[in-house]
Write a protein that binds this DNA or RNA. Sequence first.
RNA 1: CGGGGUGUGGCGCAGUUUGGUAGCGCGUCUGGUUUGGGACCAGAAAGUCGCAGGUUCGAAUCCUGUCACCCCGACCA
Length: 573
Amino acid sequence: MKASHLFYPTLREVPSEAEIVSHKLLLRAGFIRKTSAGVYSYLPLARRVLRKIETIVREEMDKAGGQEVLMPIIQPRELWEKSGRWSVYGDEMFRLQDRHKRDFALGPTHEEIITTLVNAEVHSYRQLPLMLYQIQNKYRDEIRPRFGLMRGREFIMKDLYSFDEDDAGLSIAYQKMYAAYCNIYDRLNLKYRVVEADSGAIGGNESHEFMVLAESGECTVLYCDRCDYAANVEKAECYTPADVAPAEDLKPREKIHTPGLRTIQDLVVSLGIPENRQVKTLMYWADGELAAVVMRGDRDVNEIKLKNALKCNQLFMADENMVRQQCGAGFGSLGPVQLGARVYMDQEVARMANFSCGANQDDYHFINVNPGRDFVPDGVFDLRNAVAGDLCPVCGGTLAALRGIEVGHIFKLGTKYSDALEATYRNAAGEEKPMVMGCYGIGISRTMAAAVEQNNDSDGIIWPLPIAPYQIIIIPVNAKKADQMQAAEDIYRQLSSEGWEVILDDRDERAGVKFKDADLIGIPSKITIGPKALQENQVEVKKRWEGGSRFIPIEGISAKVREIIGPQLSTTK
RNA sequence: CGGGGUGUGGCGCAGUUUGGUAGCGCGUCUGGUUUGGGACCAGAAAGUCGCAGGUUCGAAUCCUGUCACCCCGACCA
């Protein structure tokens, strides 16, 4: 491709809307343009990258036994009523009406469609197992779209759905997908980790997330330094050794006057009580009932764990006025001792002794409170977020934390959707059984952003070779010099004919401009044709991902290029 | 939805407090000089100041309403 014809409008300045590096660079390098909040156009360079990611994903899905389909984006309300998700999905679903005022949704996901399809066509165990997948746009009216492609309202996603006779079949499918996903991220050349995850609203039991590691990641990943335990912070268990008892004598409880002191920090500052000797009490509204969560002062509540522990459907922070009515004190003065609500205690608190907490009376706190003696909780669970430094729940090693971008997520769904949508089959014994399902997603457009997030420098993007929009860019230093252009054309034709994807920057720009653009758009290797080297029939080859360059003779350039850049990749458009 | 902020040539911004009919840098176009890391000189084009109403002799500027976008939070691939 000649740069003079390539549509890649680069920007010198960063559009003010961009916050994170992938968003800034994809805009600046002419890969994407925004149409509306969370909705983007993909320009030619981006299209090529997306296609390469898709190709790798497709190859691995096919290899694992998947078959590609294409399904409607516009989906009728009835389908979503059947699964019960028309109301559950709420405002996050884009909804529209046709001319007859019939309701439709823009598909946020395709469980309903695919299950209905399979239900209609699959009736016998002889037709199972079955793995179908699609790569297409999905729509979620996010509360707050942000970070460019990272959290869009329209995004490209691969979803594969597996249908099996039983749990054993599902496990096989799940393992195949797990392996396929590892292959995919290996082939994409991205640094990632697989973590245990909560399966959330989609349902099911076992679930793993694939996290591309990057500073700007929205997820916190905890992993063990000794074994291969790794989990999303939402899921990571906090391991509390059972044998550790409080190592101090219990002191008598005292009520102290603490005018105006409301926060953990207030008590640290005014009374010198460290955060980890305090307990905080947070009030939740769980399925219409007030629930207090009691936790060490420096910890954060994990609402997913809480929701799972209480087995409730709806959970949100309680309103202060309501709490005051029922408990007699405001948020900053609550404690588990004789509280007018059910008390759920984080397991860590059981190991604490002589801590301080609110006295359920404004401007008063207790000190030297002890669980068991001063109050008995209605339940003790693991309710806090794990943090770096915690003990590994598997081997007792130490957990460390990393930031990650969730680019893939695999679930065992079980029979949740097949029950709701009556996707059944006849087994060998002639019995009617629900199919056992799994679903496996990869954010394609998000993966592109994640790749940039992980691979960039102050000059721009550094595409991993397997997904680079082009692999080589040829830059004649001066487009007006016929000998340079001639050499550039020759090399361009030769490398292109050998299957390399090459840009020839034939624009009549100064060398600096061409170098800057080449670096910005992140082409992995650059061949510069300058006057001095050309006299000796040489050109300069430079890799985007490392400093330094080398001069090589034009004669026999293909072999040299292969040697320097790497073997020609099989990935096709 | 709550809190904060911004809308002014393609991009980044100033001007708004104190009303007088729009300016800077980058980019674009023309000509010339340049040519190994975002050149220089000369000239030019391009803006209903987000939109609608109002106040005023006069509104980018004041008032009312409205829309869009960004950031923080609750939610999520």
